[in-house]
Design a protein around this nucleic acid. Structure first.
Lengths: 162, 162
DNA sequence: ATTACTGCAAAGCATTTGCAAATGC
DNA sequence: GCATTTGCAAATGCTTTGCAGTAAT
């Protein structure tokens, strides 16, 4: 049951050929295993040109030769994100987070993935440029959201000490 | 059982005094009703200075004099967002959306709230400015996400025709 | 009076997880 | 051979919803 038998366009094949070794490296560095299931998921990801959601991908792999279970698809996507091979556009975090708008113009947020802290930052130019991009695309902006994920100063230091 | 009996700082009182009439106007325009529960939720929202999540707010209002049920808190927050009084920082959309990163630098997405379409847009300067902001805050960026919500050209036209 | 809103508890639903079997190393 | 992964199905947990009672207009 090799996945190479799938009908893949040249473009997809090439992406997979470039991306798979990167994933293998990542897995080895992590002392994780290089498995069939992980290759199938990666291939399916690169077979899609557009945006997709985890559940659709899982559905596509729920039957047929290249079957991978839902749980494994979710687990592999998380790994691929960690490896930087996939990006989350819209996340389904357990909690929806709010803030009030009153006298508080839109701004970006940095979220520390270690301690969960939110740091606000403002940049007029970014807001202007977003508005410009919308104008160019004839898109009527209602609101926007800019979130940066990473590690805050304190947590970086903590790690360095540890 | 008036909510005015709550101990509120001057600052909070003032925000509520300014924001409540705006919400009342919004509700009237919508032919929706101005209710005690809605005022309690709005007051609680402005009693928080920081970011909060829907469920925490619901927990705070789940007991005591100013009791409001979970369902109503969620429904009211949605109304307040529509009214522009509250902003969602991190949403719990049903689906998490992904895209691949390979040969595909980070960029923004406009999501049409009518048809669900994703439109990509790139702006080098925005990326640079985000990196600058992170540097200033000693924040180690792993990745960022920029999403604009609104209505695409086609859907705006559709509405105009309808 | 009429109609919308609320509370409650149950349902929804994407995602996560526990555990036995399978697979990579 | 041993440890990690997988598949399956059940659990999780935020959010939504149906319905009967309540409150706003």
């Amino acid at each position: 049951m090799s996945i190479d038998e799938k009908e893949l366009s040249e473009e997809v094949k090439q992406s997979v050929e470039e991306a798979w070794p990167l994933f293998v490296d990542f897995l080895k560095k992590k002392d994780a295993r290089v498995t069939q299931a992980r290759k199938i998921v990666l291939t399916q990801v690169f077979s899609r040109h557009d945006h997709f959601c985890a559940d659709d991908l899982a559905a596509e792999l729920s039957s047929g030769l290249n079957h991978v279970s839902r749980g494994t698809v979710y687990r592999t996507l998380a790994l691929m994100e960690e490896a930087g091979l996939v990006r989350v556009i819209r996340d389904a975090d357990v909690h929806a987070h709010y803030e009030h708008t009153f006298n508080h113009p839109n701004h970006g947020h940095m979220i520390c993935e270690d301690c969960g802290q939110f740091i606000e930052f403002a940049d007029e130019e970014i807001i202007t440029r977003i508005a410009d991009a919308c104008r160019k695309n004839d898109f009527a902006e209602r609101t926007h959201r800019l979130v940066v994920f990473g590690t805050c100063k304190e947590c970086v230091n903590k790690e360095a000490e540890g």
